[in-house]
Amino acid sequence: MTQAPLVSLDRVNLWHGPLHALRDVTLDVRAHERVVVCGPSGSGKSTLLRCVNGLQRHDSGRIVVDGTELSDRPEATQAVRREVGMVFQAFNLFPHLTVLENCTLAPLWVRNMPLSQAERNALDFLDRVHVAQHARKYPSQLSGGEQQRVAIARALCLAPKVMLFDEPTSALDPEMIQEVLDIILSLAEGGMTMLCVTHEMGFARRLADRIVFMDHGEIIEQGPPESLFDAPRSDRLKAFLGRLLR
């Protein structure tokens, strides 16, 4: 028996005013699968990710996450968000809370964890992303790479089944990119299901089981990294890869 996909998008459409931002997007992500979404900017990659946890509402089609369909019911959205962790391009850490408080807030209020347990849990994840020594500091005292690792730990503290990464290294100085990518790769090795938007093609090749190429709100082509990068079929993907190499 084949397992139902953890994340399933079925003919999802979304308009930003006149702009058709997602066109009939159909995509399944199975448990433990690592899917990387790439494409030119404005192709709808981030919009796709933001639809998966309901930060953006789709106009038509179905999105089902871990058996719950996203609908107008707020409880459905909350149920999905409890199972989906998200890491943003700009980190979006809470600047007025310490690193530790950033990581305990959701477990305290969403999982009703006692404080001592939430702190132990948070320190455990902060240790895994190598920033446990900064637990009592404020985000502004950390480097960009450290902040993004805290953001990853913050998402992991809710024990999500799926992680969404929205260009996690785009806002980082070049020397800090690798430390964040390494964390994501080690998470992948641990079996985390993930959907990642990135412009780092070398990283995409190492991380992905499957690459999805989008352009103008549409999935143009998808497949394992080797076949997609080394033998692109569509002209749009060829053009995109050609621009990257130059």
């Binding site: 979006n92 807030l105 998402a155 809710l158």
Partner: peptide
């Protein structure tokens, strides 16, 4: 910044929190 609210929503925090 709007990102603060979005990050909090993504963490499934209730509205009043």
């Amino acid at each position: 910044p709007a990102g603060q609210r979005e990050a909090a929503l993504a963490l499934a925090l209730p509205r009043w929190v």
